[in-house]
Design a protein around this nucleic acid. Structure first.
Length: 547
RNA sequence: GCCCCCAUCGUCUAGCGGCCUAGGAUACCGGGUUCUCAUCCCGGCGACAGGGGUUCGAGUCCCCUUGGGGGUACCA
């Protein structure tokens, strides 16, 4: 049976790169009827953040990536948090030491640094020099007692070429002696990635390791470890990397960077207010602007929201907050570094599973193109069953704290229906928001007012429309439509000339749901009230201009 | 510096020696539909990085150059 896993380290939100790795592993498992495991690699105490595991789990769930074993669902090979598996790793470390396949080291960071510099000055790659005689357990105890750092290194066999058989890259060989003995147990007692990963993949029965290309250089070392311990070697697939517009790996750092640039570009920024909304001290904000530190994501997001700027979406949750559908995001990232062939692109998840095949992974890196994702999203909004779309919309509204959330399912469903062609959930929200604001909360967009109310006879038409609406009974969409159309005909004008002033009057700008439905849903009373406010506010201006 | 990977339209990609005058998608440009924003429809622009081989024949195989990416941690 195929067993795959996704093994993130909980250092922050799940970003699209991680989501893609998870997705490919998941797709393979689902395609083959195998098993997909979620394992949390939290062996670096310094980097873990308390909420990250929770967030990664949420993000995976939102994407629809479920796991057969792992946190929250359990399984026979648990625990699935590496921080809870220390005893297991220690057993294997001891075994290796006993067999003289690993040894204690007492080097300080500074000493190591020197060795590396020495190697570089000789234009050679650094490889740790193995001692002739391995220190004993007593030596280690003594060193520890003296306050020296104690680590354990794996004595990697130096006499043979290591060949990594990779599904996407073919056979990649590494010359003997190219890399030195690497640390498997850190001074704090926790295992390093390269060690814990090998142990867990074996113990959890992982058959296929799908991960980013950044791990390719780790693989020979891991294979040597597998041999030394008598473990299987799984099938490896090192995926191409997703790069960003600026070049380099798509990184979470781009969001704070974009925010910093935006702040710098604005000369009259209120640092104190910024600190307040970001939940930071003024000092922290200053340090951030200076490029010295980076605050946590929620702080970054809050500041961006306050400034009204949109940061490039990097984390899965960013896409959620921007109104993307998980179906679209999954479909899109699946096609980054994978192609089913046959010109197939837009497809539901079932189809994606059915056509997934490791042999069709792409070798070259790919750039994350948000434009294309938008196109995918538009398509998926159209494709997704309506009830599901309404559910997505509701979740979105809740997350962004939109007033539209007060709508019941029936109304939400109608709004969604009337928004056919929308590209994101954000657009649907934007178009329907005015229905859920109090009449005095409507903000009139300056440009819209100028363009449709103050130009031509916008206000006069609005007055006429107001009178007709006031006398209308019943106040139905059909009656509203008939009235507006016949008025257009009567005045020899396009419907736009009639509808736009009305639109601006009721929603404050030129973007809304179809006008007939908008007016009908808003209701007679509110419509008339908003028109009256509009006439009062902007009517005086025109008259003043005319005289 | 050292090691490794990669290279087709701006971008994602199809192509696995002749089906290629290089296909699709997206972006962009032009036109049409439309009450707004969108959607939608039609048309257009646009690529085999360069140089050597191999072969009757090369986008496809080999080598070099160049370019891009990754790694080089007591991070994962």
């Amino acid at each position: 049976m195929v067993v795959t896993r996704f093994a993130p380290s909980p250092t922050g939100y799940l970003h699209v790169g991680g989501a893609r790795t998870a997705l490919f592993s998941w797709l393979l498992a689902r395609r083959t009827g195998g098993k997909f495991i979620l394992r949390i690699e939290d062996t670096d105490l310094k980097r873990n953040t308390p909420t990250a595991t929770r967030q990664v789990i949420n993000d995976l769930r939102w994407l629809g990536i479920n796991w057969d074993e792992g946190p929250e669902v359990g399984g026979p090979s648990g625990p699935y948090l590496q921080s809870q598996r220390k005893d297991i790793y220690d057993q294997y470390v001891t075994k290796l030491i006993d067999e003289k396949k690993a040894y204690y080291c007492f080097d300080t960071t500074e000493e190591l640094q020197e060795m590396r510099q020495e190697a570089e000055s000789q234009k050679k790659g650094f490889a740790y020099k193995r001692p002739e005689v391995f220190p004993t357990g007593q030596d280690a105890q003594k060193a520890r007692a003296q306050g020296m750092p104690v680590t354990v290194r794996f004595a990697i066999p130096q006499d043979e070429t290591i060949v990594v058989k990779d599904v996407v890259r073919g056979e990649v060989s590494f010359s003997p002696g190219e890399f030195g003995d690497f640390i498997i147990k850190k001074n704090d007692g926790y295992p390093t990635y390269n060690f814990a990963c090998v142990i867990d993949d074996e113990l959890m029965g992982v058959t296929h390791v799908i991960r980013g290309q950044e791990h390719l250089m780790n693989t020979p070392g891991q294979q040597a470890l597998q041999q030394a311990l008598g473990f299987r070697t799984p099938v490896y697939a090192h995926m191409s990397v997703t790069v960003s517009e600026g070049g380099g790996k798509l990184s979470k750092r781009e969001r704070p960077k974009a925010l910093r640039n935006a702040i710098k570009a604005d000369p009259n920024i209120d640092v104190e207010r910024l600190a307040e909304v970001g939940g930071l001290t003024v000092e922290q904000v200053k340090s951030f602007i200076a490029g010295k530190t980076t605050p946590d994501m929620p702080g970054v997001d809050a500041m961006a929201k306050y400034l009204g700027i949109s940061l490039p979406e990097i984390n899965v949750v960013d896409f959620f907050n921007s109104g993307y559908l998980p179906e679209a995001l999954v479909n899109f990232i699946a096609l980054l570094g994978f192609s089913p062939g046959g010109d197939r692109e837009i497809m539901p998840i079932e189809e994606l599973i059915a056509c997934f095949d490791l042999s069709r992974l792409t070798k070259s890196n790919s750039l994350f193109d948000r434009n294309k994702l938008l196109a995918f999203n538009t398509e998926h909004i159209r494709m997704v069953p309506k009830e599901k779309l309404v559910q997505h919309f509701r979740n979105y509204l809740k997350a962004i704290e939109s007033p539209v959330i007060s709508a019941d399912n029936e109304l939400l469903s109608r709004i969604v229906e009337l928004s056919e062609g929308a590209r994101t959930l954000a657009q649907i929200e934007q178009k329907s928001r005015f229905l859920f604001l109090a009449d005095d909360q409507i903000k009139y967009d300056e440009k819209a007012v100028k363009k449709v109310l103050l130009k031509d006879s916008g206000l006069a038409i609005l007055q006429t429309v107001r009178d007709k609406l006031a006398g209308m009974d019943p106040f139905t969409g059909e009656n509203i439509e008939n009235m507006l159309r016949s008025l257009a005909e009567e005045k020899q004008l396009g419907l736009g000339k009639i509808a736009q002033p009305l639109r601006v009057a009721i929603c404050g700008n030129t973007i809304s749901l179809p006008i007939f439905d908008s007016v009908q849903m808003l209701g007679k009373q509110n419509t008339l009230a908003r028109i009256d406010t509009t006439l009062k506010n902007f009517g005086a201006t025109t008259q003043a201009q005319e005289t």
